[in-house]
């Protein structure tokens, strides 16, 4: 079974080819022009996808020496994401699927992030498990009972964790995206330098709130000055990152203990954060919980995870009609 995966939900154009469980190729073209603007400009993103997608698909076929006629199914991100951006990939995928007369699979992007954990060959991961999904758009604790069977146990009531990274990075003039930059500076910093408040959500022990965190950073920098902030960059970054990781850790492991979970899976762009990986691995080990992270290259948006989800849909005899449209706020369940 060979699945062609297409991902254009935000600012990465990505095409992958999956042969059974082997990733033949996974090409990602990140749109660097958004950096100038401190965030993704939706219209630019859509235009770039439009320009790049066919060329990238051809390159993926060439690099893997696979002909379009050997492809068994097309898997494309349907949502959540930016409407205009999603529609480019979705329309292209539908055209291919119709012309080749092969199944079309409209994939949920969040489900794709979870399925990224199945991409490494000998991961040994099986359903069910608890999943912490952390990206620029989402922060959720999901009880994954089986493929397609999800219970959301907790979520951010405001900013996503990745958004908290991006916003702090903007305050500190570190550019976009902010997560990798903060992670990098934090390596030489002291996480106890400044105590950022760990917000708790009223009436819920499992929901998150990250919006106060960036405000706290904003006021701190305003009060002490940008010069001071730049002088203490590693310590500031490390302290800020520690607060985010700490909040994620507290709620996730609380749920893991409560639900008597023995397998924990981390998914999404923030899963690439080195501090998060270390802290979560340590705590999981102490509690005797098996923990899985996608390899860093499959944490960010990529088409391999979309193809992998498509493969799983086929195994479960799920295909999509060519009438489906993009859904910018598509929920997981």
């Amino acid at each position: 079974m060979i699945v062609l995966g297409i991902e254009t939900s935000c600012d990465e154009t990505s095409v992958a080819i999956l042969k059974d469980n082997d990733i033949m190729v996974n090409l990602i073209s990140s749109q660097l022009l958004h950096q100038e603007y401190g965030g993704v400009v939706p219209e630019f993103a859509s235009r770039e996808h439009m320009r790049l997608l066919l060329c990238l698909t051809q390159k993926a076929l060439d690099q893997s020496s696979i002909s379009l006629n050997n492809i068994d199914a097309i898997a494309v991100t349907r949502g959540p994401g930016l409407m205009g951006a999603l529609l480019v990939g979705l329309s292209f995928g539908k055209g291919l699927s119709y012309a080749l007369n092969i199944p079309f699979l409209a994939v949920n992007h969040i489900e794709g992030h979870i399925m990224a954990n199945f991409l490494s060959r000998d991961s040994g991961l099986n359903f069910p498990f608890l999943c912490l999904l952390v990206s620029g758009g989402h922060t959720q604790i999901v009880n994954v009972k089986d493929f397609g069977d999800y219970d959301i146990l907790g979520r951010s009531v405001d900013d996503a964790a990745g958004e908290a990274f991006d916003k702090a990075a903007r305050i500190l003039n570190l550019g976009y995206p902010g997560g990798p930059a903060i992670d990098e500076f934090s390596k030489n910093g002291d996480p106890t330098f400044h105590y950022f408040p760990r917000a708790k959500v009223k009436r819920s022990r499992t929901d998150f709130s990250f919006s106060g965190l960036k405000t706290s950073m904003l006021y701190l920098v305003k009060q002490k000055g940008q010069e001071w902030a730049q002088g203490n960059l590693p310590d500031l970054c490390a302290s800020y990152q520690e607060a985010i990781v700490d909040m994620l850790r507290t709620n996730t492991f609380l749920m893991a203990k409560e639900k008597n979970i023995n397998t924990l899976v981390i998914a999404g762009g923030v899963a690439a954060n080195s501090r998060l990986r270390r802290v979560f691995s340590k705590e999981a080990k102490n509690l005797g919980i098996r923990i899985f992270f996608p390899s860093p290259e499959y944490c960010t948006d990529n088409a391999a995870m979309i193809a992998r989800t498509g493969l799983e849909m086929i195994k479960h005899k799920i295909t999509s009609s060519l009438n489906v449209s993009a859904v910018p706020n598509l929920p997981l369940n």
Partner: peptide
Amino acid sequence: SYTGLRIGLSTVKGLAMPR
């Protein structure tokens, strides 16, 4: 319409690619 134009052209690129 930007979005309309992109839906049309993306679909066409997909339709045309195999042959």
